[in-house]
């Protein structure tokens, strides 16, 4: 499904076409889920945010500029919601609910690859240990292949800041990765 088609389906979904909603969801949900899951680690939080992303999609459909890639708009919404989530107080409201679940579910992350990575301290495991500010740059740069200027646009911060975070993140990864026995990378 290309951008034009997506735009058309999204428009239909926004005005109430349920089959259009299904199409948009099927075309985008794995990407949205994975983006959020790279940035937030609590399974319940991830699901809440993914749900919010779709709510925001219908509601702010009118802010989409068809001249830019659809996924750029989508990733902008996703990252902003993740950031809102980290900042906002409405998270606390759900603490009660979550505490109840935590008592019955100690490990909420079940994806095998993630567990393995963390145990093996491989490169992905190290990415997960980066601070959020560095990690979000790495994910947008290497998972979504955005240019640093585009990342600055999505995160609404200066390009210089993105450059320095990118640099710091790679420096950190090289240092850690070298120490845990990986190949020494010289750039």
């Amino acid at each position: 499904m290309n951008d034009n088609e997506l735009h058309m389906w999204l428009e239909k979904a926004a005005i109430g076409d349920e089959s259009a909603f299904q199409l948009v969801y099927q075309a985008t949900h794995q990407d949205v889920y994975r983006t959020v899951a790279f940035l937030i680690y609590n399974k319940q939080d991830i699901e809440d945010i993914v749900n919010e992303v779709y709510m925001r999609m219908w509601r702010s459909f009118h802010t989409y500029d068809p001249n830019r890639p659809f996924r750029f708009w989508l990733h902008g919404i996703t990252v902003r919601l993740v950031q809102d989530w980290k900042r906002k107080a409405w998270r606390r409201i759900r603490l009660f609910e979550r505490n109840r679940q935590l008592t019955s579910e100690h490990c909420d992350w079940t994806d095998k690859a993630v567990l393995q990575s963390e145990m093996q301290h491989d490169l992905f495991g190290l990415v997960r240990q980066l601070s959020y500010k560095l990690r979000v740059v790495v994910i947008l740069r290497y998972f979504h292949d955005y240019a640093l200027e585009e990342i600055a646009d999505i995160l609404q911060i200066p390009v210089g800041t993105v450059k320095s975070r990118h640099h710091l993140a790679l420096k950190e990864l090289r240092k850690q990765f070298g120490m845990t026995g990986g190949d020494a990378y010289v750039n």
Partner: peptide, 15 residues
């Protein structure tokens, strides 16, 4: 390496 690792990891994440 990062591109490869992240793609691999993403493959195992399912909504």
């Amino acid at each position: 390496e990062l591109r490869y690792e992240l793609r691999q990891a993403a493959e195992s994440m399912h909504c």
